[in-house]
Design a protein around this nucleic acid. Structure first.
Lengths: 151, 151
DNA sequence: ATGAGTGCAAAGTGTTTGCAACTAT
DNA sequence: ATAGTTGCAAACACTTTGCACTCAT
């Protein structure tokens, strides 16, 4: 799939130009994330990356995710209960990934995407009233999803 | 301090009337939380409870916190990075604790209280648009606090 | 007396780290 | 050549659990 290749390539370039090495481990991690629409934990990524690059170590995946996040080509979201999830950063240059917020259902654990703008007013208010720079994508909100509320 | 005693007493009553036993461990946990204005992790609580009831075990504190949360006399908040924090539930009957949301600074780790109403509009919007019942107190938001942004 | 609660030790997640061997540049 | 990366094993922080014993009721 061309989109995927492009998204990965652009991000690998960014790695290289930041003075990092392009390794098969990092490539595998990026490919995994470029190919899924899901929210993957580091362990999920490790598992899938191992299909492409047998023998890849969990610690390596954690380190790769870390580096890629620092470079801004990936983002991570902390979810209340459970592991941090990773995705491609919604980088203008690379396309493919779209910005959004996350909400987790405390009942079933599923993570839902929310429109990117739902917290815009809150960001503004906190900035003005408390001088707090809110990063609303960085932590998942918690609640109960429609299905669990109904069921 | 009378407020503290009252808040603890009312909550112990609730334990009893729910068919649970009132133990020194549970009393100690409630006292610790009634006495502080801070956001305490289970370990913090355990440490302080040990001053009142030497020998109290961490696992017991975790279990006590769990039970008390289920009864609704305590609440807990998941913070992106680090341990869950606990506080007295802002129960009308007991006074003393006030409802509020939490935001954590990703730089210094400190947790700030936010006005309880900052997410009211968001709660409403998500309920209407996605059928998602948001519990905004249940997860801390992340961002950078005024001090860290300035410094 | 009896079942809920406790202490303990052990395991279970999710994540990080020190170090020696390796590899992309 | 050499600095950045990797694998491994071990440790880490936070939390849960199985079991025998104890205590509030």
């Amino acid at each position: 799939v061309q989109n995927v290749t492009g998204a990965v390539g652009a991000r690998l370039d960014r790695l290289r130009s930041a003075g990092h090495k392009v390794t098969t481990a990092r490539r595998a991690v990026l490919e995994v994330l470029a190919q899924t629409g899901e929210h993957l934990s580091a362990d999920d990524v490790a598992e899938r990356a191992a299909l492409r690059r047998p023998g890849i170590h969990r610690a390596t995946v954690y380190r790769a995710l870390d580096t890629l996040c620092e470079l801004g080509v990936l983002t991570h979201t902390h979810v209340g209960r459970g592991a941090t999830t990773y995705h491609l950063a919604p980088d203008a240059g690379c396309g493919s990934a779209t910005g959004h917020l996350h909400a987790q259902c405390s009942a079933c654990g599923r993570i839902e995407d929310l429109p990117a703008d739902v917290l815009d007013d809150v960001v503004e208010r906190l900035r003005l009233e408390q001088g707090f720079r809110l990063h609303p994508e960085h932590a998942a909100l918690l609640g109960v999803c429609r299905d669990c509320a109904a069921g």
